[in-house]
């Protein structure tokens, strides 16, 4: 079960009143999350009226040293209301998440670079990501991507759109 209910601090896509809520705990450098990314995009596009999608951070930093800087970049972009732009560009270029590339992404999506540079190193954002991680752990997340549908753990994702669609079917 999801221990931290979806709340106003979450990054969401779709209708807040949607009957189905899909929460993903993800790591920006995790290859399986990268493979799930376009599938989730497609799912959201097809079911935008009855689905709310939430992304929470679950960076495994020792295995994926670029996951935390990338998560910080997305949270920093959120301060300029461009969380999803950064989230998307990171997953679309997942193979190369060096600092220089992330700077380029920030420019590409049109962030105020001075503010971005400051926010990227913010302790507050780091705390937020760690809180996401802790909430995930408490909810039983043991790897990424990990999905919850309406608060219930969904372990049957097999990499296909169909598996997610059947899970959110009414």
């Amino acid at each position: 079960m999801l221990k931290v209910p979806v709340n106003a601090q979450d990054h969401t896509l779709g209708s807040l009143h949607a009957p189905r809520v899909l929460v993903e705990y993800g790591d920006y450098q995790c290859p399986s999350c990268g493979e799930a990314y376009p599938i989730i995009k497609e799912l959201i596009a097809k079911h935008q009226h009855n689905l709310l999608f939430v992304f929470r951070n679950f960076p495994l930093q020792e295995s994926h040293p670029e996951a935390m800087p990338a998560a910080l970049a997305a949270e920093a972009a959120a301060r300029q209301s461009k969380f999803w732009e950064m989230h998307d560009i990171i997953y679309e270029n997942q193979a190369d998440l060096t600092i220089q590339h992330i700077m380029n992404f920030a420019e590409e999506i049109g962030l105020d670079m001075e503010q971005f540079r400051a926010d990227w190193k913010s302790q507050e954002l780091l705390n937020r990501i760690e809180k996401d991680y802790e909430g995930g752990l408490r909810s039983g997340v043991n790897g990424t991507p990990c999905f919850f549908i309406n608060g219930h753990r969904f372990d049957q994702f097999d990499g296909s759109l169909e598996s997610l669609e059947s899970a959110i079917a009414m």
Partner: peptide
């Protein structure tokens, strides 16, 4: 490895 990596990341908690 996954289990131990997960615990490794959770040491602080």
């Amino acid at each position: 490895s996954d289990e131990l990596s997960l615990f490794n990341e959770s040491l602080k908690l």
